[in-house]
């Protein structure tokens, strides 16, 4: 009788560039998934040694502790400006601005629009969870109509504070960006699509194409007051009608 030997074959593992440390994110938070996807893409493109990550102010303020590439802190909203400065000094590097909704669409709107409009050859990863997580669940520029937060306790009232802003559609009015896509990490299918979008956004830099913008709808169970499973379902049921998924531009 032939003897079968068991051969070890690794089919799935921690990306090399993802630090093997416990992270500070809440259970069910999307940042952990998105960090992993970003790390996988960096590994697969082999750009660990040429990537510079700009971390925002917000829950992902410590992103540079989890993804083992050169990292830079940015003041609240200024990640695209900091990324611009870095990229203009090191045009060969892959420069990523990782931002949340308050950072990108409230305090940093000017920096967001103008970096996109200049066509800075950077990749912006925009994590939209419709709330300010780090400061304890306040209303964000992407908070949905009637959504209750710490600073919209009766629900967001558009007559008073306007409607949620759609970043992809806003940036899609500009001529310079080469890639704009909205994804969601609320399902396995969505996660796979998100990875493809991040991959494309990074490859655009490697190929010196131009500015890429990837918006990722993500869960904030703590801020929303939901169970993780409930939060993922809420992304699909409530967020995607307001923030439709899909590619808006791919040049």
């Amino acid at each position: 009788m032939p003897v079968e030997t068991l051969q070890e074959k690794l089919v799935y593992g921690r990306p090399q560039v993802l630090a093997d440390v416990p992270n500070h994110y809440c259970p069910g938070c999307g940042h952990g998934i998105i960090h992993k996807l970003l790390a996988q893409c960096i590994d697969e493109l082999g750009i660990q040694q040429t990537t510079i990550l700009v971390a925002p102010v917000g829950c992902s303020v410590l992103a540079y502790n989890y993804i083992k590439v050169d990292g830079c802190e940015a003041a609240h909203g200024r990640a695209p400006a900091v990324a611009t400065g870095i990229k203009r000094v090191h045009p060969e590097a892959t420069v990523i601005a990782y931002q949340g909704d308050g950072d990108l669409l409230a305090i940093g709107t000017a920096e967001t629009i103008h970096a996109a409009n200049r066509g800075e050859k950077i990749t912006v990863i925009f994590v939209n969870n419709a709330i300010y997580g780090m400061t304890g669940g306040q209303m964000a520029p992407t908070t949905l109509q009637a959504q209750k937060t710490k600073t919209s306790p009766y629900g967001r009232n558009p007559a008073d504070v306007g409607y949620p802003i759609r970043a992809c559609e806003l940036i899609n009015t500009l001529d310079a960006p080469v890639f704009i896509e909205r994804c969601a990490v609320s399902s396995v299918k969505g996660i796979l699509k998100t990875k493809r979008a991040i991959m494309k956004g990074l490859r655009n830099q490697v190929e010196k194409k131009g500015y890429s913008f990837i918006e990722i709808l993500s869960m904030c169970p703590t801020g929303w007051g939901m169970e993780p499973r409930e939060a993922a379902a809420w992304v699909d049921s409530d967020m995607t009608p307001v923030f439709p998924l899909g590619n808006l531009r791919d040049r």
Binding site: I52, V54, C72, A74, A75, R78, A81, V82, A83, T84, G85, I86, K87, R88, V89, H90, A110, E111, I113, H114
Partner: peptide, 24 residues
């Protein structure tokens, strides 16, 4: 070299921060 007219003084100083962090 690189000259860039920023969208604001706030953006300009943060571009300075990025460029300085990059060693320039």
């Amino acid at each position: 070299g690189t000259f860039l007219q920023a969208e604001s003084e706030v953006a300009a100083i943060n571009m300075v921060l990025g460029a300085s962090a990059a060693g320039a």
